[in-house]
Amino acid sequence: MEQEVGLIGFGEAGSTFAVAGEWGARAHVFDRKTGNGPDREAMLASYKAAHVLGARFLDDALASVDLILSLVTADQALAVAEAAAECLPAGAIYCDMNSVAPQTKQAAAGVIQAAGGHYVDVAVMAPVNPARLSVPLLLSGGQAEEAAARLATLGFAKTRVVGDAVGRASSIKMIRSVMVKGIEALTVECILAAEAAGVREEVLASLDASEKVKPWEERADYNLDRMLVHGLRRAAEMEEVVKTLEGLGTGAVMTRGTVERQGAIGTLGVGTPPEGLSGKIAAVFAGLQ
């Protein structure tokens, strides 16, 4: 028998998955835009185009399914879990695929499990387009293995269970974003200043010349080593970078954070850093206590 699914939220992710998997009438969909607001007609048209079964009320969408996917905006993830807990079938697997903190997912797990459901933390690790059902998914929670099997029947091709603790999958996603989104923000801060100073081509060429491809384990080890040894000096240098950017009027939000972090690590007084990334991390934790 084909897997039926309750789908909460029919924005980019929900509609992309439903269409790519040709779920059709197997998908029982609720989106709050099907109320009486200005978006109602457009949402109903989206349901029709995807051939899914649209529901005006949440309990109608969840009444007969044993697998539920929550794909709403981050600020609504917990509220939706609380609403779903009031009407989900006993024993249903609730896959929370929203991009929220592990603490938020643990709170949502509490209400779902108290209502007799099984909560699974799912982290969507790349944009849903163009990957669609090949988007990498990390799963954690007591029913993660079962959820992975159910998701496979819907066409998801890249699922991986990373543990049985709710919050583990989302921790990986959230902490990874420190680097991914941080690099984006640093890039903008650097390039705007370079453009304003009239030196963009030279800055980019210098970055190309100094960039060496390394595994992130090696990069992290090297970067932390430099901060432990030279953090105070680098913090002072970055203070001058802040002056440069502020003088150009392009902003220095990220760079001011760099000054603070370099200085904090540099003041630990570790001496010669230990060998290996794990040793350096342990030295930092010890110094911060």
Rank of each mutant, 00 (worst) to 15 (best):
L186R: 01
V52G: 09
A185L: 05
P136D: 07
P274D: 14
L232W: 05
Y94W: 12
A79D: 15
L78H: 00
I191P: 01
V29P: 02
D225A: 13
T250P: 08
P130K: 04
G141N: 05
A109P: 03
R226N: 06
G182S: 09
R234Q: 08
T153Y: 01
A264S: 11
Q3W: 06
A209W: 01
V270E: 01
V166C: 00
I112Q: 00
G14S: 08
Q113M: 04
G257S: 13
L186E: 10
G276N: 06
L71D: 00
V213K: 15
S99P: 12
E189C: 04
G117C: 04
Q76E: 05
P89K: 07
I93M: 07
G9Y: 08
G35R: 02
T73L: 15
I112P: 01
I183M: 04
P274I: 11
A147K: 00
T258R: 13
A18Q: 13
G257E: 11
S170N: 02
S206K: 00
A165N: 05
A42V: 14
G167F: 05
E22I: 08
Y119T: 01
E240L: 12
I265K: 01
Q143R: 07
V5H: 06
A115M: 08
G35C: 14
S134R: 06
T104F: 03
E41N: 02
G163F: 08
A220S: 08
K214A: 14
V259C: 08
Y119F: 15
K105D: 00
A236S: 13
A107W: 03
S64P: 04
L7C: 05
L248R: 12
G167T: 00
V161Y: 06
V213G: 12
G182N: 04
K181N: 04
G182D: 07
V161T: 12
Q106E: 09
F10N: 02
R150T: 10
E237P: 07
A77T: 03
K212P: 02
G251M: 10
E2R: 14
S46G: 10
E217C: 11
E201C: 09
L137Y: 03
I265P: 08
L139A: 05
V229G: 03
A90L: 14
A165Q: 11
G249F: 12
M254V: 13
V166Y: 00
K212L: 12
E240C: 09
G279Q: 05
T250M: 12
M97F: 12
R160H: 10
K33S: 12
L71H: 08
V65K: 01
T16A: 13
H51R: 14
D66A: 15
H28F: 09
E240I: 08
I191D: 07
I265Y: 02
